[in-house]
């Protein structure tokens, strides 16, 4: 059976669902439920979300829902696995650089802001109980689950969609699903013949049938982080959403985009984001981790590591601007 597709928007980004040998409506319903639960658990941009309530109670021991407990655990694991390059304690830093509302509301140019940058508190300021039912975040620390949270949402959505399809399928073993949440792709179940074909792009809004490098995966996940898409300006300062934990500002990386394949979307997104933050050290780190990755430098040149295939790909677009968090109309205070 040919794969069938549904597209819609949720969590401020595009969702693509592709199923093979399964009930598309059942899969979509399952994904919508997961994304609604995710939105309520760890959206920074709705006042009634669980994580907003948690951040407001920093310093106290707070009971967690299973979903938020799972997400914080994933974020702490990501921080540990990357030595803190991907860290959930970037909430205040995000707000400091102006990312304090849904991106659609902040992307338009606005006046200069005063940037007071300082290293983030670090994931060691978070205590999560062994059963993930309680957490204590040091006073003054705000959590933002960011890329890990989105990757987890993709993983859970794919798993839930597969279960929902198998519940109503006559041949459950043949069911397969791909979920793309803003370009963070997770697969579950059986892949179509030849695998899941994925266009490697810097912008997840790129149509899947656009020209470019296409790779296939049979299982697991593939995610991309980039400094080129979620960008905004405040005065003369050019900002993006990937935080350097050392400075608390937008990271200044030799890589503008990183795509990584891994067993889960959490891991793929963690490694992709870490690659941007780690900079030149990312190549060795990815190699040691055995993670296939495609790194795009600022000048558009591509470095492939960990067995990422060499295609007959067209050249990347021209240079993209790097971050300039210290524009002339901004004051920057480094350190605490």
């Amino acid at each position: 059976m040919e794969p069938r597709t549904a597209d819609w928007r949720a969590l401020g980004t595009g969702v693509r669902l592709v199923v093979v040998d399964g009930d598309l409506d059942a899969a979509r319903s399952a994904v919508e439920d997961i994304l609604a639960a995710v939105d309520l658990a760890y959206s920074r941009f709705r006042d009634d979300s669980e994580i907003v309530g948690l951040n407001a109670r920093a310093g106290a021991v707070v009971a967690l829902s299973p979903l938020l407990g799972r997400a914080i655990d994933a974020a702490l694991r990501a921080a540990a696995a990357t030595g803190g390059a991907v860290d959930p304690t970037v909430g205040r830093a995000m707000r400091a650089i102006g990312y304090d509302a849904d991106f659609d509301r902040i992307r338009n140019p606005a006046g200069p802001i005063e940037l007071r940058l300082e290293p983030i508190p670090g994931w060691q300021s978070v205590r999560l109980s062994a059963n993930r039912s309680e957490v204590q975040v040091r006073r003054g620390v705000e959590l933002d689950l960011g890329s890990v949270g989105k990757g987890l949402a993709s993983d859970l959505s794919a798993a839930a969609a597969l279960v929902a399809m198998q519940d109503v399928a006559t041949a459950p073993d043949r069911c397969g699903v791909l979920v793309s949440l803003g370009g963070d792709i997770a697969c579950a179940g059986s892949a179509p013949d030849g695998g899941w074909r994925i266009l490697i792009s810097e912008d997840s809004d790129t149509p899947a049938d656009a020209p470019g490098e296409v790779v296939a995966i049979q299982t697991g996940a593939l995610a991309t982080s980039s400094t080129t898409v979620r960008r905004w300006r405040r005065g003369d300062a050019d900002l993006h959403h990937l935080i350097d934990p050392r400075t608390g500002g937008s990271v200044d990386s030799p890589w503008r985009t990183a795509s990584v394949a891994a067993a889960s979307c959490v891991d793929a997104n963690t490694a992709a984001t870490a690659s941007i933050v780690l900079g030149d050290a990312a190549v060795a780190w990815l190699g040691t981790a055995g993670l296939p990755a495609r790194l795009v430098a600022r000048d558009g040149s591509v470095t492939r590591v960990g067995g990422w295939p060499e295609p007959d790909d067209p050249p990347e677009p021209a240079d993209a601007p790097g971050p300039n968090p210290a524009g002339p109309e901004s004051s920057v205070v480094l350190g605490t």
Binding site: T5, R16, R197, A216, T219, D267
Partner: peptide
């Protein structure tokens, strides 16, 4: 900074393969 199992890993998978044809989805930043 504790995690529930005390370990932190990134889990590798088989490398993607080159292919042709229309993609099912596009990866990218959002």
């Amino acid at each position: 900074g504790t995690t529930s199992s005390g370990t932190a890993t990134t889990t590798a998978t088989a490398a993607p393969t080159t292919t042709t044809g229309t993609a099912h989805a596009a990866t990218g930043s959002s």
